[in-house]
Design a binder for these strands. Structure first.
Lengths: 158, 158
DNA sequence: CTATATTCATGCAGTAGTGCATCTATTGTA
DNA sequence: TACAATAGATGCACTACTGCATGAATATAG
């Protein structure tokens, strides 16, 4: 190896760091609009519910790594905003199911669509061959990284 | 194209989405430790100062897209925590320069190191050839994405 | 030298999130 | 039926962030 040159692995790390900054930018811009109307923790609630379907308030609090009492109030705010709706669980007058409203779902969809759109725009600058190479490489990278627990993304409020 | 199959571009978008989740996880885990001692906005201040060197409190507020008055207090908290230090600008008794302390720098360095380390660990699962392919593909992707303004990352508090 | 502009700090007020303890209603069990 | 467990809401207290208005000190321009 030429003195001063980086080994393949170090080059990969640097390239990955740079790319991750770009992708972070895409993610950030995709949620920017939503953050004008809900907070990041609130948006997170919507994403979780989109993936899980209706949840008891306690179960939801657990997924958000929050206290149940804290959550009762967060839900209250979000119901007031029209993002969530409470409904008693059929057959129980104690449990309360929280579900996302159409308005909430639209917000999540908008973010997802925006993210896909921008990625598509970026990738459209590449040739079909380059796109294929990117697809293969990212698949490899994702596989090497393994599953990303939802709790990890929660660290950033996502 | 076989019915039901995705065009190359759509496949690339999905692969990129998946990979971006993985990379987001890496970023999140890298800052998790820091978030035990500072908030995300505060960490952001440290990152900005690391890149820029000492700044006037007004200029720093502008970079953080915050009100100067808000910032005066944030700085106060961070000085109390030992992350920042105020010093009068030489030749001016009005302006106050904010700089990161060694403790603050150590925090940022720790996060950076952790991020590089995990990326290295992930990439070590790949062969040298695969690493080279990933490096090339990500460079392509980053170039296609263009520059990511710091303000964009600020959306997420990063 | 005086008036104006700049720079930062502070008072005031509000939102969101956080945790702990506690209360009420309901459900399940002994 | 009485007691314990569960689910959720509420009271209380605190931190951080946010903006707007304003005050105080300093620097600059006329």
């Amino acid at each position: 190896m030429t003195p001063g040159a980086l080994p393949t692995s170090a080059m990969s790390v640097e390239a990955t760091l740079t790319a991750s900054r770009a992708l972070l930018g895409v993610v950030a811009r995709s949620v920017a609009g939503a953050l004008a109307v809900v907070t990041l923790p609130q948006f997170r609630v919507l994403v979780v519910l989109t993936g899980s379907g209706p949840l008891r308030i306690g179960a939801l609090a657990e997924k958000m790594a929050a206290q149940q009492s804290t959550f009762s109030r967060t839900v209250e705010r979000m119901v007031a905003g029209g993002w969530l709706e409470r409904s008693p669980r059929p057959g129980s007058r104690r449990e309360v199911l929280i579900d996302i409203t159409p308005q909430g779902r639209a917000l999540v969809d908008e973010v997802t669509a925006r993210r896909r759109a921008e990625l598509g725009r970026i990738l459209s600058h590449l040739t079909t061959e380059e796109q294929a190479a990117v697809t293969a490489a990212l698949a490899l990278l994702a596989q090497a990284a393994g599953e990303t627990p939802a709790e990890d993304l929660l660290i950033l409020g996502l």
